[in-house]
Nucleic acid binder design. Structure first.
Length: 432
RNA sequence: GUGGACGUAGCUCAGUUGGUUAGAGUCCCAGAUUGUGAUUCUGGUUGUCGGGGGUUCGAGUCCCCUCGUCCACCCCA
């Protein structure tokens, strides 16, 4: 091992794995396009105040998980811990949110200084969708349907959609007061974390994992009972829509979010296959954020999904990337053949942009080259020696017939083919 | 941030109560055989035993520190 290692929680992603990443992004791009969402690309660095203002001063993310530093001018900058704040900032900066509707998506790395674990890294990646200028609940339904379709298109099954409504900010304020009053009466029985949060962020007590705390909460006032009339109608219409679209969901009145800007609809896609990192996609409505960041009042709803967790799940469920093995591998014997192999290969790549062709480099005997050809997963070996060059042809050896199956015979059929016939042979391979 | 388990070749792992030059399989390379890639056989390369310190005549093995991975908490995607 080298004396240098990557920064803790910052991971390299290597070739066999990158294929699945590419597949995921291709599927996501296609899915977002199907709903008319346009991609927005955002910087990794923002002014620290943006996150303090949007995510909330007293949240764990802002208090202890951000990568924050001073640049050479003394400005406090932060590596973005999530994508929504930047999306709103960019939308406002470029007038995208000025009295109009926007459907946007983004993908990229986010940064949080947490203790790493499987499915939780300091640099991790999110895909997100955000819709602005629409009050819903129809657009709430749209973003949830979009997330459901993304999971389906990726082939991921076994997820649960959990749903809740946090109500209007007035209703939430009233509910928070009622909850605090209730919890204060039972404070002695609460776990330590919940006691701490009782006054800093009381709603978070609701999703405590402590059995003792959950026991106390059984008699607590519930959020859904405290909903204002308008939020209740909004929420019921959304649920009707989900039933219309056959999207199964579970009501979870304890579902809250760690970011302060959410109100009304909140939801999470969860799995029990990833241990403690069970949330794979989460989001909700955040009608107050645009105004909070200096824009005019603009309704908004969106979600973000953790790419590493999606990939972990896909692997657990046996989902693989489409086969991208080479179509053909060129074996060249001798200097003259080596030069001709290069020329021939470039010509073939001109002719077939989709052709995946590997040319043996570094010489070696034919046996060794064929071995490498086999290991590359290529379907065909194209053998080029002095005799073949003289005859302007190649020996074509079939290494495997099936798409990805192992070589079936110890020695596949082999034929001598003039260079002029090669394109037709390769075209057949590409169509298969 | 808290608690716990674990770090030995690229990969999967063995390494007995501390005892000479640290092992296996796999992978890779070369050679033989096979019809030029499977198989089989022979040979070969690769390790600061995560790092540092300590105990000891002697540490991969025991102790401390540190770094990293994983699990739970916490947090969240």
């Amino acid at each position: 091992m080298s004396r240098f290692q990557s920064v803790r929680g910052f991971n390299d992603i290597l070739p066999p794995d990158t294929a699945l990443w590419q597949h995921l992004h291709a599927v996501a791009t296609r899915t977002f396009a199907a709903y008319g969402y346009g991609e927005i690309r955002l910087p990794l660095l923002e002014h620290t105040s943006l996150f303090a203002r949007s995510i909330g001063e007293v949240t764990d993310i802002v208090e202890k998980e951000m990568f924050t530093f001073q640049d050479r001018e003394g400005d406090s900058l932060t590596l973005r811990p999530e994508g929504t704040a930047s999306t709103v900032r960019a939308g406002l900066e470029h007038g995208l949110l000025h009295n109009q509707q926007q459907r946007l998506w983004y993908a990229g790395p986010m940064f949080r200084h947490e203790r790493p674990q499987a499915g939780r890294y300091r640099q991790f990646h999110q895909l997100g969708a955000e819709a602005y200028g629409m009050t819903g609940p129809d657009v709430d339904l749209e973003v949830i349907a979009l997330s459901a379709r993304l999971m389906r298109n990726l082939g991921i099954g076994g997820l649960t959609l959990e749903l809740n409504s946090l109500g209007s900010s007035e209703a939430r304020t009233a509910y928070r007061a009622a909850l605090v009053a209730f919890l204060e009466r039972h404070e002695a029985g609460l776990d330590a974390d919940s006691k701490r949060r009782l006054h800093s962020n009381p709603l978070r007590v609701l999703d405590s994992k402590s059995p003792q705390t959950q026991e106390i909460l059984r008699d607590a006032p519930t959020m859904l009972d405290a909903l204002d009339a308008e939020s209740r109608t909004h929420f019921e219409t959304l649920q009707q829509g989900l039933r219309d679209l056959d999207i199964a969901y579970t009501l979870n009145p304890r579902l809250v979010r760690g970011l302060d800007y959410y109100g009304r609809t909140v939801f999470e896609w969860t799995t029990d296959q990833l241990g403690a990192q069970g949330t794979v996609c989460a989001g909700g409505r955040y009608d107050g954020l645009v105004e909070q960041l200096g824009g005019s009042p603009t309704p908004a709803v969106g979600w973000a999904s953790g790419v590493e967790r999606l990939l972990l799940l896909m692997r657990a469920q046996g989902i693989t990337a489409p086969d991208a093995a080479a179509h053909a591998y060129v074996c060249a014997l001798g200097d003259a053949a080596q030069r001709e192999a290069m020329r021939l290969s470039e010509r073939l790549r001109d002719q077939f942009p989709a052709l995946r062709l590997i040319v043996n480099a570094g010489g070696g005997k034919l046996a060794a080259q064929l071995k490498r050809a086999d290991r590359s997963g290529a379907s065909l070996a194209l053998i080029l020696g002095d005799n073949e060059v003289a005859a302007a042809s190649v020996q074509v050896k079939l290494l495997r017939t099936g798409a990805a199956g192992p070589n079936e015979s110890s020695s596949g059929p082999q034929e001598m083919l003039p260079w002029t016939e090669l394109p037709r042979r390769l075209a057949g391979l590409l169509n298969a």
